[in-house]
Nucleic acid binder design. Sequence first.
DNA 1: GTCTATATCGCGATAGAC
DNA 2: GTCTATCGCGATATAGAC
Lengths: 236, 236
Amino acid sequence: MPIRNAPTPPAASASASASASLPTPALPAKAARAAGPVKVSFKTQMLQARENAIVQAVNRLLAEKGFDLMTVDEVATEVGIAKASLYKHFSSKEDLAAAAMVRVMGLAQAFLDGLPASSTPLERLKSVARWVLQQQLAGEMPSLPSQNSSLRANLMANKVYLDSLMHVSEKIGSWIEAAQQDGSLSRTVPPLVVLYTLYARACDPVPGFLKAGGQYTDGQIVELVVASCFDGLNTR
Amino acid sequence: MPIRNAPTPPAASASASASASLPTPALPAKAARAAGPVKVSFKTQMLQARENAIVQAVNRLLAEKGFDLMTVDEVATEVGIAKASLYKHFSSKEDLAAAAMVRVMGLAQAFLDGLPASSTPLERLKSVARWVLQQQLAGEMPSLPSQNSSLRANLMANKVYLDSLMHVSEKIGSWIEAAQQDGSLSRTVPPLVVLYTLYARACDPVPGFLKAGGQYTDGQIVELVVASCFDGLNTR
DNA sequence: GTCTATATCGCGATAGAC
DNA sequence: GTCTATCGCGATATAGAC
């Protein structure tokens, strides 16, 4: 039975092909202005600021309604510009979503890099889970239906996204292996399963259910889910 | 901060309000013909058969593409009738999805009832998780985006669905409590969290990711996910 | 109840003036 | 690059004959 529709696991190929090969050209196009005097011609600054506003609006709407129910008109209205102007910045709805995903991966990367150097691999992994759950509860985790094929195709063609996804996956992957070797993480669960399980917290419906119940704070929900995830449902 | 959009946890009200009150009128309308001679006028039989075919097609398409991407035309084509004929049976796309959900809840109920009387509460709960995961892997678990409001409104107004959902939730809930009391299930995880965690396996992306990886059989995937869910990621 | 044909409309994307 | 106005398409739902 052949695999139909290629469900696009996040970083499936990344973690499978152990690729430390790609040179990763230090941020392509627009944002690449590290060296040289600050020639950011104000106009360009405004443009960047507007695009940031757009991407943030998209991010919020993606988290709130999901890709299919989000309309480009809404995005334009929320940003306060005309829809046609949006298409001068992004050439399709899929591109908008991709930009939001790139932004999120950037935030994730920054979070990973900001973790205290003293923390153990297991602590890092738990921190990742907490961060993802917090983002979701705060309504800032875009939810892309993993079934939309045009969207998936667009994402898989986005080099910036794939690079950051791969980078994040490899970093987390190294922690998983370290945690298994120091004995804190179960060796009977394959690293790939651990990685996917962490990623899956981004679209876990349990936090939303618990929040709707109204008897737990966001912080309590995060700890409940993290505990059930790492410690399991069985008695220890 | 008020709760916006009422995320509709499955059976949130059910398990919260401990309602053994509702009389549950033994299946309303069409299917209620237990007593009396078999007066099923053939015509009615054919009608029922066709509706079954419709609901099964909807179920499959919901699992494959999700509610938003499923079109009524597709359903009609797959069943082999005209779209207008569909609307003689079901008055809206939401009704179609609701019928599919009712069917699934019926299957779930039957599965629960068919579990061997000798099995322990914990074994029952694991069996539930396995069943849900198997359904999903087999492409027979409808995936309703938990964000679509018109769909949710329709579901929440569907008494048959709510009744079966409540019934299933209460049965599983009783096993959870029993498993906690016999010491096999952790007492530190609230029963509601356990219940939601089991339900959430229906839309867990991890099985799909692993399947796409191609290095595990469906059976292995089910066991991996069940193990990580019940035993946790940490070392035991 | 089934069909063909069509109404209606929401939404992604574009034209073209400024 | 921004706007208003509009196209074009696809999808839900319905009309009306049989």
